Amino acid sequence: MGNAGTGARDRDRDTEGRARNARPRDGLGRPLPYGASGVERQPEGVVRTPEETVAEAQALLDAGKPFHAHEVFEDAWKSGPEAERTLWRGLAQLAVGLTHSARGNVTGGARLLRRGAGAVEEWAAGSGERSPYGMDVEGLARWARELAGRVEGGAGTVTARTEAPRLRGAR
């Protein structure tokens, strides 16, 4: 009876019965109405090598789909070694920060960009690794803080595709 009279639909479930939102989404991950055409979703729970993660996330960032890149980083964060979780979580936060900035959420975008920058720097300091899997950690942190400052400074909504970082170095 839980949804009776509310107009809410039953929760979407995957083949194993876990709750999964099946609503279509736009390129920035915003839910669209059921039946609308959206962009293809990233499958959840995919185990990739770190190199595959970086390459797939970069392709999504280049396509202006930072929300979807975040899902790729989230898979690495959840399935990778414990010692790398802060790195992958920080990269996911950078992608979500770009997502929110592109959606016009100034406060949330800037906050997540800075949080992600801090996380990747914290991981680099703790591990001693400055270029994990060829990624430019210092450059990513610099990019994130610069974008956060521009967004807060009144740059307005940013375009995800043109603001996307290069994970392995400057454009």
Rank of each mutant, 00 (worst) to 15 (best):
N3L: 13
R11I: 09
R18G: 00
A22S: 10
R23S: 02
R23M: 01
D26L: 03
D26F: 00
G27S: 13
P31H: 03
P31G: 00
P33D: 14
A36M: 09
S37N: 09
E40G: 12
R41Q: 06
P43C: 01
E44T: 05
V47I: 12
V47D: 12
P50Q: 10
E51V: 11
T53A: 07
A57E: 09
L60P: 08
F67S: 00
H68F: 15
A69Q: 04
E71H: 10
A76F: 13
E82G: 10
T86R: 15
L87G: 03
R89T: 04
R89G: 08
R89D: 11
L91N: 02
A92L: 09
A92S: 12
L98M: 08
A102Y: 13
G104P: 09
V106R: 15
T107H: 08
T107P: 04
G108C: 08
A110T: 02
L112H: 01
G116F: 00
G118V: 04
G118C: 01
G118F: 10
V120H: 05
V120E: 04
E121R: 14
E122H: 12
A124D: 05
A124G: 10
E129I: 11
D136G: 03
E138V: 11
L140N: 03
L140R: 04
W143D: 00
A144G: 02
L147S: 04
G149A: 13
R150Q: 13
V158K: 08
A160P: 10
R161H: 12
T162S: 14
E163N: 00
A164M: 14
